[in-house]
Structures are given as structure tokens and as C-alpha cells.
């Protein structure tokens, strides 16, 4: 249920977005970026490269793909294709969010600017609250939420980097382990649609062996092969209840 909230002005809405992002969303995403910072350190890269990645690449799965494939020595094409596949979901997410951000008289470039903040956490918060806000407060709320989350994750990227460099090795292991464990649980929690659940299971089963077959192409083949198998199986299997709209 969307909570009925109304702010005094667009400025107040932006500040509310700022406040709303502090708390559980920031704790969860912030710790994941601690993990990302430690991953960057483990790959032997400078801290400013980690910050550059969080600043420009903003969407953790794609950032992890880049670091992992960099460590494996993958080609530019493989990295671009893997990030494109990982982040293609941002397109339908942006398409679904935009109607809830539009307000008459807003210059178009502002939509393009705030679209940088479309990533699961801020997107979910905006999808929940924005429909209930007056039109001119929606984009400010999303921008306030996104900017704060993004800034804080830059801080935790650097923090994770220096922690990984300074703490004893066995503690660093825990930091580097945060991301795989976090995404594993997010996926398990999110696996409601049968097609996506199948994609997760088949992907997890095919990923490691295909990596052994080809460290270069294993990840791309896993995505296309396991994803298409899951999609096809879902079409062929008798449907109990058909999944509706989603992102």
C-alpha cells in the first residue's frame, strides 16, 4: 500500500527523499559497497578506480561483472556484452518508472539526468511512494533519494577499500564475501516468477562448469544459454498462474 504522504513543496519532497534513503536502504546497499570496495582492492586496483566505477557505473551487479572480468583478463567485447546483459533490466525499469516522475513543464534533460539513479533500491522506493505524491514533487523525491544513496555508497566504496587493505586477511575474506552472499540471498528472496527461478537455478548450475570450459566466454554463454533454457521451459511447461508485469 502506498503510504499517503504529501510534502509542502518540491524542495521538501527532495529532502524527504534524502531522509528516506538513510536507514535500511543505505545500511544494506552501503555494506554491499563496502564489499565492492574490498573487491576492487583485491583486484589490485587503486581506490580512485573503485570510486570511478561507483560514480559512473552505478548499479552494483554490472560493477562486479567488470571487476571480475578484469581480473580474468577478458576482452573489451566480452566485458561490454556481459554488462549489457546484466543491466538490460534497467531499460524496462526506467520505462515503468518514468510515468510516475513526469510533471508538466519539466525540461526533458532532467529525466535523462535522474535516470542515472535507476537501480533497484531507489527505483523500488520511488515506485512505492511517487504515485501518491503531487506531480511536481515526484522527480525531486527520487532525485533526493538517489543522490544521497549514491554519495553514501561512494563513501563506503572507499571505506571498504581501505578496510580490506588494513584488516587481517581472514577479516577481509568476510568483506569480499559480502557481495556474492548478498546477491545470492536477494535472488532467493526475489524468485517468485517461475521463469526467473529456473534461470537462477540453471545459471548457478551451468556457471562454474562453463567457466572451467572457457574463462573468456563462460559467463556470456551461461547467461544466454541458461536464460533461454529457463525462458523456453517456462513457456513449454503448463502454467499454473501466469506472471504479470514486473521489472
Amino acid at each position: 500500500m502506498p503510504p499517503a504522504r504529501r510534502f509542502a513543496s518540491p524542495r521538501e519532497a527532495a529532502l524527504a527523499g534524502l531522509r528516506d534513503s538513510i536507514g535500511v536502504p543505505m545500511l544494506v546497499l552501503g555494506s554491499s559497497y563496502l564489499g565492492f570496495g574490498s573487491l576492487v582492492e583485491g583486484a589490485g586496483l587503486d581506490v580512485w578506480l573503485g570510486l570511478f566505477s561507483t560514480f559512473t557505473g552505478w548499479a552494483l551487479p554490472g560493477q562486479i561483472v567488470v571487476i571480475e572480468l578484469y581480473s580474468l583478463g577478458s576482452s573489451l567485447f566480452v566485458v561490454a556484452a556481459a554488462v549489457a546483459m546484466t543491466n538490460a533490466r534497467l531499460l524496462p525499469m526506467t520505462v515503468t518508472l518514468m510515468p510516475y516522475l513526469r510533471a508538466p513543464g519539466t525540461p526533458r534533460w532532467r529525466y535523462y539526468a535522474v535516470s542515472h539513479f535507476v537501480a533497484v533500491t531507489a527505483w523500488a522506493a520511488a515506485m512505492r511512494l511517487c504515485p501518491s505524491l503531487p506531480e511536481n514533487q515526484r522527480l525531486p523525491y527520487f532525485a533526493g533519494f538517489g543522490t544521497t544513496l549514491w554519495s553514501m555508497c561512494l563513501v563506503t566504496t572507499a571505506t571498504g577499500y581501505y578496510l580490506a587493505g588494513g584488516l587481517p586477511g581472514f577479516v577481509t575474506l568476510g568483506l569480499v564475501f559480502l557481495n556474492p552472499i548478498y546477491f545470492m540471498l536477494v535472488f532467493v528472496a526475489d524468485a517468485r516468477h517461475r521463469a526467473r527461478m529456473l534461470a537462477l537455478v540453471i545459471g548457478a548450475l551451468l556457471g562454474p562448469p562453463l567457466h572451467l570450459v572457457s574463462a573468456d566466454w563462460g559467463l556470456l554463454i551461461t547467461g544466454v544459454l541458461a536464460g533461454s533454457l529457463a525462458f523456453g521451459a517456462d513457456l513449454l511447461l503448463p502454467s499454473k498462474t501466469k506472471g504479470g508485469g514486473h521489472a
Partner: peptide, 24 residues
């Protein structure tokens, strides 16, 4: 598209846990 993204990430995560490179 969603199935491909999920499969790719599930494959990557399984690989990071079972066959990590780097500190893990």
C-alpha cells in the same frame, strides 16, 4: 531479457563462491 540477466548473475555468483579468483 530478465531471464538472461538472472542466469548470468546466478552463474557469476556460483562461480565466485565455488571457483573464486582474488582474495576469496
Amino acid at each position: 531479457v530478465a531471464c538472461v540477466a538472472y542466469a548470468l548473475l546466478a552463474g557469476l555468483i556460483a562461480r565466485m563462491i565455488l571457483l573464486p579468483n582474488g582474495p576469496l
